[in-house]
């Protein structure tokens, strides 16, 4: 039975293995905007204001922190903290 569960979990994991994680997505966004941020960001915190503007703070593997702002019109900006 344990083997069956392990196989099932493995199959499910293999289906979702290609999806990008939020940590990778944020690191890629920081990289895209001209700052080096390796493969994965950490300490991700996300807030959304009343107007629908989103602010994400994250740390890169080198310890630098960044703020990613996404406006309600879909504009993305990255600034080092």
């Amino acid at each position: 039975m344990n083997r069956l569960i392990a196989i099932t979990v493995g199959l499910l994991a293999s289906v979702n293995i290609m999806a990008v994680t939020p940590a990778e997505d944020i690191a890629a966004t920081i990289n895209l905007n001209g700052y080096a941020c390796g493969n994965k960001a950490s300490n991700i915190k996300e807030t959304t204001d009343a107007n629908g503007n989103k602010t994400i703070t994250a740390s890169c593997p080198d310890g630098r922190k960044y703020t990613i702002k996404i406006t309600n019109k879909g504009r993305v900006s990255v600034k080092p903290m």
Partner: peptide, 10 residues
């Protein structure tokens, strides 16, 4: 699925 949503937006 190779690119995340925020990266696509960017």
């Amino acid at each position: 699925d190779a690119i995340g949503v925020i990266s696509k937006l960017s």
